[in-house]
């Protein structure tokens, strides 16, 4: 490649790299805090785990906590990336040496690296616990880790989208948590009431179940739904979808991520500091 082009590319990459490194530096306290929470939780759970659990149950049970943990942590790291920059106008100082795409891109990737690191730490702790307690390794835990990372990327893109639209970080966090914990669940219930045969693949909450159910033992092999009985035998059982297939899960997460980035790009284009 032409030396001049390489030099140009390096020149353009520098602001991005600098932003990335600064963001890592600014976030280290949060990283430390959430790493400690993650490690302490796994340690406590490992000490006081229910003895009748097999290794699969232990892992899946733990991952229930992990999914909420990763939602809150993502909100903590991603909700202020765009809105605080536009609200506080911290970017004034850096322009025109850096443009808003490089600034937001650098910050986003730094936070994504952090959160992926937190996910890996959590899985690592869980795997070590399984080895110590059950003297075995769950190979599917590594597939689960891959899906968890993909899921985190999707979640981060969605939060970043709201951070671009919303004026404040707190508002972004509230809206995302409400959508995730209330919005998706309500829609899932409505869909179940309308037609139990339709799989709620629109719901990120449902897609996230893949992280748990990839660990064997949660459902019979090939089964992705279960009958749930409410009020004993008085009412007929309800067919509740528990997990999508890996292919559908990855496809939906990819769609969410791509659409989120597309809308982020459009919103950022219009936004002026």
């Amino acid at each position: 490649m032409d030396k001049r082009i390489v030099r140009e590319k390096k020149k353009n990459f520098n602001p991005f790299l600098r932003t990335y490194l600064l963001e890592l530096r600014l976030r280290w306290k949060r990283v430390l805090f959430f790493s400690i929470i993650s490690v302490v939780y796994v340690l406590l759970f490992s000490f006081f785990y229910p003895y009748h659990f097999d290794e699969g149950q232990f892992f899946r049970y733990e991952l229930d906590f992990f999914r909420f943990f990763i939602l809150f942590v993502s909100c903590f790291f991603f909700s202020d990336i765009v809105c605080s920059e536009f609200d506080k106008k911290t970017g004034y100082i850096l322009f025109p040496k850096i443009n808003k795409n490089k600034l937001i891109g650098g910050k986003y990737l730094a936070n994504l690296s952090i959160i992926i690191l937190l996910v890996i730490i959590h899985y690592l702790m869980l795997d070590i616990s399984v080895v110590v307690i059950y003297d075995t390794v769950i190979p599917e835990s590594f597939i689960s880790l891959g899906i968890a990372i993909f899921y985190t990327i999707t979640l981060s893109a969605l939060i970043l989208l709201f951070s671009t639209i919303m004026p404040k970080a707190n508002l972004t966090t509230i809206v995302v948590i409400l959508i995730y914990l209330v919005g998706f669940l309500v829609l899932e219930q409505v869909l179940t009431a309308i037609n139990q045969e339709i799989e709620p693949i629109f719901s990120l909450n449902y897609i996230g179940n893949l992280i748990n159910f990839i660990i064997p033992g949660g459902l019979l092999e090939g089964q992705r739904w279960m009958w749930v009985y409410y009020a004993g035998d008085v009412l007929p059982p309800v067919k509740v979808w528990r997990t999508p297939t890996i292919e559908v899960g990855i496809l939906i997460m990819s769609l969410y991520t791509a659409l989120s980035f597309f809308f982020i790009f459009l919103a950022l284009k219009k936004k002026e500091l």
């Binding site: 140009e8 911290t90 004034y92």
Partner: peptide
């Protein structure tokens, strides 16, 4: 902007 001579800006009261 990378090709321009170096510039320094102080706009409003800066927020860091």
């Amino acid at each position: 902007s990378q090709d321009l001579v170096s510039m320094g800006f102080l706009i409003d009261i800066p927020v860091f």
